[in-house]
Amino acid sequence: MTSVPEPLLSLQGRKALITGGASGMGRASSLLFSAHGAHVVIVDRNGEAAQDTAEDIRRAGGTAEAHTVDLLDWEALDAFLEIFVRDNAHLDILFNQAGLPAPPGFDYDLDSWTSCMTINLWVPMLLTKRLLPLLRKSSHASVICTSSIAGVRAVSFFPTYSASKAALIQYVKSIALLLAPEGIRVNAICPGATDTPALRRDIEDGTVRATIDQIAASVPMKRMGNAQDMAQVALFLASGASGFMTGTAIAVDGGATA
């Protein structure tokens, strides 16, 4: 009798930890990963939103857990990681999705630089290192980091943010080479202009000096990306469909970097 192959994008039986998993791209990825069979571990500073996302997953028939962790709180993050490593036998997918913007132009200072670099670069570095023992126990481990097209090409109005995302891409490429012999894959997603609640807040407070329509008009495809666009690429990188891919930085930008 011929066996039926597993669906190409299946995450059945896999465990995925997603930072910033309660809103925007993180929430979309949490829901999509669960819909394809993963048990989702949502880590977010907004505990209420994390619980709401976990409940949505359960109502849809999936399994999830929510953890309230401020990634800028060293003690809280360390405590979470210690307990998670102690209580879990393995981890299949680490999605370093959480990110933080920075002031435009030369408005940065030491505090804003430190916060941006911490969330966008150091936290993915720390989580990958601390959770590596669990990833090594998976037969199909995948680490995904959310960078940005701002890390691929110069963006004059966001120098601090661009620097953090460019550094993240080089970290991804470096550890991809380091871990390739072990079969642990590491890749980055580089979103272009993406319509998220965070972007709309940045427009409202003047951090981004453009409208949604103006931003969309600048994209070759004449629309902005959305959270689902990014979640679908994350699903691809988490699944066996990308089994021979590592060290890549995939632009999901409607042609902006073409």
Results as ranks from 00 to 15, higher is better:
Gly61Tyr: 05
Ser147Gly: 15
Ala227Phe: 00
Ala166Gln: 10
Ile189Val: 10
Thr114Glu: 14
Ala249Val: 10
Ala167His: 04
Gly243Asp: 15
Ala258Trp: 08
Thr63Gly: 01
Ser148Phe: 00
Ala49Pro: 11
Ala50Phe: 10
Ala193Cys: 15
Thr196His: 01
Ala258Asn: 14
Asp195Val: 05
Ser23Ile: 13
Thr257Tyr: 00
Ala216Trp: 13
Gln12His: 13
Met230Arg: 01
Phe84Ile: 13
Ser174Ile: 05
Ala210Phe: 01
Pro104Asp: 02
Ser242Asp: 08
Cys190Pro: 12
Ser138Val: 00
Asn88Arg: 12
Thr128Gln: 08
Ala251Gln: 08
Ala180His: 03
Glu82Ile: 14
Ala231Thr: 07
Gly254Ser: 03
Thr257Ser: 08
Asn226Gln: 12
Gln97Ala: 09
Ala180Leu: 01
Phe84Asn: 12
Gly243Gln: 14
Gly192Val: 06
Ala193Glu: 15
Gly99Ser: 07
Ala49Cys: 08
Met221Trp: 14
Asp202Cys: 04
Pro159Thr: 07
Pro159Phe: 08
Thr118Ala: 09
Trp113Val: 09
Pro159Ala: 05
Leu134Asp: 05
Ala210Cys: 03
Ser112Thr: 09
Phe236Met: 04
Gly61Gln: 07
Ala60Asp: 15
Asp44Val: 00
Gly255Asn: 00
Gly61His: 06
Asp70Trp: 14
Gly254Cys: 02
Ala188Ser: 15
Ser218Asn: 10
Gln97Cys: 13
Phe244Glu: 13
Ile169Lys: 10
Phe80Tyr: 05
Phe158Gly: 15
Gly255Val: 03
Trp113Thr: 04
